[in-house]
Simulated scan of single mutants.
Amino acid sequence: MAKKTDEGVGIDVKWSWQGISGKIRSRLTSALDRRAAASIDQTGLDVERQVAVHRALTESKLALIAASTKALQKEIQNNPELARRALNVLSRAEREEDNIQASLGLAIEDLQNRENTGEGSNDGPDQLNPDFLNRWEHYASGATTETLREKWGRVLASEIRVPGSVSLKTLRVIDEIELPTALLFQRLCGRRLGNYVPELTAGIDQYEKVQLTEAGLLLQSEFPRTITFGEGEKADGTSWWMLESNGVGIAVRKDPLPAIADQAKFSIAPIRVREGALVLNVLVFTEAGRALASIQNYSEESSFRALAEAIQQGSGTEAAEVLKHVGDNSWSSADESATKALGTGGDA
């Protein structure tokens, strides 16, 4: 039976709130209350999902079912087809409720197991937008497989972390994405840096790029979109190019420039020098792409290591190295103890 907690919420969630900010806690519990959620034990989520529908039905729903059954009782006795249809409706409603509760349980798991900090996590309202929840419930009700339930659970968790990050349009795009496209995008996200992916490491061909663009996940552009590296110096006084994202970065040697970096005046090579600066061609996510990318597991450091390896081709390991932020404007090699003071890059 659901009970009031010291948070003033009509649920009993038996898991640690450690690391969960007040804002995120409030949004989660508002979503749970909306679903008339029952007690969810972190150690028994599978069992809870199996029986959640029976405990999640509110008194009003039970009363409605009872009243409807009474009104139809006489008609059902003389109309087997009507009885069959009524049972189908109730069975479908039960399955949909089960799907929603299962997706909700997986959203809780995601909030517990993945980082809940970041830009916007402590901003915005204390409760989720009702319109968003209405649409989310509609899509989650059709999540008949564990894969789909996990997807919608992560979508809800993403919106709880940063309200407004998943628009109603984005929900529709995510719902309409076919499995091959979703798998392709998931592979692409394994090399993302923030909200973009370097062309050098994207690992997709032109046809696949068009496929993701037409699916509404990548921005369309006649010319390559680019990111510009910043400038900085190593401790020994040598000049390097620098690009960073979320506390991890890459330093690229300026002299001699890596062989892969094109210096032709009108070049559109994946990495090149343009007007005295090093620029990198990137594939940029749309709003829907950003939302879908946010629910994918990936490692920023792994993405930078892949980029460093691509730049080192033909020039050796000294051409580029991965760095980690150690405070102020100082960066330390991810593999060595040497410290750099480097500038940061930005959008071109």
Rank of each mutant, 00 (worst) to 15 (best):
M1V: 12
A2H: 13
K3Y: 08
T5S: 15
E7R: 14
I11A: 02
K14E: 13
Q18R: 14
S21L: 03
R34F: 06
R34V: 02
R35V: 03
I40R: 08
D41N: 15
T43D: 12
R49K: 12
V53T: 06
A56D: 10
E59Q: 13
E59A: 14
E59C: 02
L62I: 08
A63C: 11
A66R: 15
A67S: 12
K70G: 11
A71M: 12
L72I: 01
Q77I: 08
P80T: 04
A83S: 15
R85N: 12
L87Q: 13
L87C: 07
E96D: 10
E97R: 09
D98E: 11
L106Q: 11
L106A: 06
A107H: 09
T117F: 07
G118E: 00
G118S: 03
Q127S: 14
D131G: 08
E137I: 05
H138C: 01
A140K: 00
A140D: 00
T147N: 08
L148D: 10
E150F: 07
K151V: 15
W152N: 00
S158Y: 03
G164P: 00
V166L: 06
S167I: 07
L168A: 14
L168I: 15
T170Y: 01
T170I: 02
L171V: 00
R172F: 01
R172V: 04
I174T: 01
E176S: 15
I177F: 04
E178H: 03
L179F: 04
P180H: 11
T181K: 11
L184G: 01
R187S: 14
C189K: 05
R192S: 03
Y196R: 14
V197Y: 10
V197M: 13
P198Y: 10
P198G: 04
E199M: 10
T201S: 15
A202W: 01
G203K: 11
G203F: 08
Q206V: 11
E208N: 11
T213V: 12
P224H: 06
I227K: 15
G230F: 14
T238C: 11
W240R: 00
M242D: 09
L243M: 11
L243H: 05
E244W: 01
S245D: 06
I250M: 01
L257E: 04
P258T: 03
P258K: 04
I268E: 10
I268M: 06
R274L: 15
L278Y: 09
A291E: 02
A291G: 10
L292T: 00
A293N: 05
I295C: 03
I295G: 02
S299Y: 07
S303K: 08
S303A: 15
I311T: 11
Q313K: 13
G314D: 13
K324T: 15
N329V: 03
S330F: 13
T339A: 05
K340Q: 05
L342Y: 10
L342E: 13
T344A: 14
G345R: 06
